[in-house]
Design a protein around this nucleic acid. Structure first.
Length: 602
DNA sequence: GAGTTTGAAACT
DNA sequence: CAGTTTCAAACTC
């Protein structure tokens, strides 16, 4: 069920050791309406301890207000109320003896407060939901937010009828809280039915030891500091199990990923997923309802890095399901920023990291305007370099190159034949032929080497499968599968026309034809290679500029935070240049990229 | 508010 | 592990 069992988001800590001090105490009835997964019943059961870590939901629920006594504070030694949302998996687990020293009334861990930035929706500090402390109050407890837009609403109540609220169907049970004021019937999820409840918990854990662990896992680069103000929103990460949506497009709250405000990931097995960055549907969804998750995302992003906000959210991107997509191709999702584009984003995260003393992140505790320069959207290094016009020019170039090559070849052939006709001696002719043969074999060899990726344009063999072989099979130019794919359904009119018009009169044999093809292929590949080389070089240069821009300075500087100069990534001045048309090999020295003529850049 | 849809959980 | 059933939330009207 969507939304269920998303308990303890951020509470993904590993199973905790049982807490002996607690285990000896009988449950304090009706004191804390929250499942005590660390209590005696689970002593020695790490899974249950883990469940304790997980039950405090992060997504939508039940954070004890700041300054409000935490459950664990009401129950000595029970760390349930420790802001487990702030304890990611792998982080040190608070030991019982440490729990005892948790200062009151605040949790030990300071919660980073994302700073609002101009132009960005003010992150709404989610009013936490007070866990009912009065056991005798079965009244529906207002749920201060409903997870949708952060607007305070009323408490989420379950309506279970058949599950006795003892299965994960029940949101309360899955969340690790007692039902309180719910509309459920035959509810056993209460202190009066503690035995049954614990049996149910045991059974649930037996089925799935991770049943009460958070479904939304942290990303490798994420940390709990990347939380919204309440620390209850997993800003990054992905669904551990993934969703399996079929009809909702993962854009409804049926989808656990969507409900968790995360993108679908490679863990998902959903069909027709639209919950990926760059999805038009997703974008429209957010744009259509400004109060919708976009706001949450803004909160999320603000907390993640104080920078990557709605811009990245709304920017179309690649990454269908955000899996192994080339990060250079498009703006990354926030997941990408976090997961995949490690370097720069990590730098940002480091800047936003909570200080060792648990205070606010340095960058955040500084004037929030300091964040403004980091209002950056990830941009691929090659952004602005490749323009649509460049692509057109490149295509034109690659079209004209073989044509010109054919012309040149034909002209050369004509000249050679004239020379041959005028040849006086047979010996000299033979000598020329020998030279030509050598040249041809050399060309063929080099061409084959270059086109080792399956291209056989230069070969004389005939591909019978080629669809556009019409009159003469021998005139059909074999093409590589890749070339065929690129050609799609278009007939090879360009090549055929140019060759027939130019080469046909002078080239009558396959040898010459394949020689022509080899020459054309050589020219095209050389041209394209040089374009790519130049592109790579531009990327390198741009990267270098960025590197220089964020290079730490030896001493502190106002525009510097955490020793990283605050130079806006997106404002690094890299000129937009035409790439391809100028990259013709005719103007470049073919060779290693370093030798590419980069005068325009320089 | 009733009925439907949906997908996770539970079950086989 | 896959298919089916159960369940309750989300959604629609």
């Amino acid at each position: 069920m969507a939304g269920k069992e998303q308990g303890g988001g951020g509470a993904g800590q590993p199973p905790r050791a049982p807490i002996p001090a607690v285990s000896t105490q009988p449950p304090i009835k009706k004191l804390v309406r929250q499942l005590d997964f660390t209590s005696a019943a689970f002593a020695g059961n790490p899974a249950m301890a883990a469940a304790a870590a997980a039950v405090t939901r992060t997504m939508q629920i039940r954070t004890v207000p700041v300054g409000y006594p935490q459950p664990h504070q009401l129950r000595a030694g029970v760390p349930m109320g420790v802001p487990q949302q702030l304890q990611p998996r792998g982080l040190p687990v608070m030991r019982p003896h440490q729990v005892v020293h948790v200062p009151l009334p605040r949790p030990a861990m300071a919660v980073p407060v994302p700073q609002a930035r101009p132009g960005q929706a003010q992150p709404v500090s989610r009013p936490p939901v007070a866990i009912p402390l009065r056991p005798e109050s079965p009244k529906p407890r207002p749920r201060l937010y409903d997870g949708k837009d952060g607007t305070p609403t009323k408490k989420k109540c379950c309506n279970c009828r058949h599950s006795k609220c003892l299965k994960l169907y029940c949101e309360c049970f899955a969340s690790g809280v007692y039902c309180d004021g719910c509309n459920c019937t035959n509810c056993f999820n209460n202190v009066e039915n503690e035995a049954a409840r614990r049996e149910a918990i045991d059974a649930t854990l037996e089925r799935n030891p991770d049943a009460f662990r958070p479904k939304i896992g942290s990303s490798p680069h994420a940390n709990r500091n990347n939380m919204d103000v309440a620390g209850d929103l997993p800003l990054v990460g992905k669904h551990n199990k993934g969703c399996h949506c079929k009809k909702s497009g993962c854009l409804k709250k049926y989808c656990e990923c969507f409900q968790a405000n995360i993108l679908c990931s490679e863990n998902c097995k959903c069909m027709d997923c639209k919950n990926f960055e760059g999805s038009e549907e997703r974008k429209h969804l957010y744009l259509g309802d400004p109060k919708n998750l976009v706001h949450m995302h803004q909160v999320t992003n603000a907390a993640v890095n104080g920078a990557i906000g709605a811009t990245s959210l709304l920017s179309p991107s690649t990454s269908r399901k955000r899996k192994q997509i080339d990060p250079l191709l498009d703006h990354p999702t926030k997941e990408h920023v976090v997961h995949k584009n490690g370097q720069l984003s990590q730098a940002i995260y480091q800047k936003n990291a909570v200080a060792p003393d648990g205070s606010l992140p340095i960058s955040q505790s500084a004037h929030h305007n300091m964040m403004e320069p980091f209002k950056v959207t990830y941009r691929p290094l090659l952004a602005d370099i490749i323009q649509p016009g460049d692509i057109r020019e490149l295509c034109k170039l690659l079209v004209t190159v073989p044509r010109e090559a054919a012309k040149a070849y034909a002209g050369r052939k004509v000249q050679e034949e004239k020379v041959a006709e005028k040849g006086d001696s047979l010996a000299s002719t033979n000598h020329d032929r020998e030279e030509k043969d050598k040249d041809q074999s050399h060309k063929k060899t080099s061409t084959d080497d270059r086109s080792s990726g399956g291209s056989h344009m230069g070969k004389a063999s005939v591909d019978d499968s080629r669809p556009d072989c019409t009159d003469d099979k021998k005139s059909c130019r074999p093409m590589s599968p890749g070339t065929l794919a690129l050609m799609c359904d278009e007939p090879d009119t360009m090549f055929a026309a140019s060759q027939n018009a130019i080469a046909e009169p002078t080239i009558g044999v396959n040898q010459n034809r394949s020689e022509l093809y080899a020459e054309q292929e050589r020219c095209v590949l050389t041209e394209f290679r040089d374009c790519l080389r130049k592109l790579v070089q531009y990327g390198i240069m741009k990267e270098e500029k960025y590197r220089m821009a964020i290079r730490p300075e030896p001493t502190g500087h106002p525009g510097q935070v955490n020793s990283v100069q605050r130079r806006p990534y997106s404002k690094v001045d890299v000129p937009v240049v035409k790439t391809f048309p100028q990259s013709s090999s005719r103007h470049l020295v073919a060779g290693n990229p370093g030798s590419v003529n980069l005068d325009k850049r320089n």
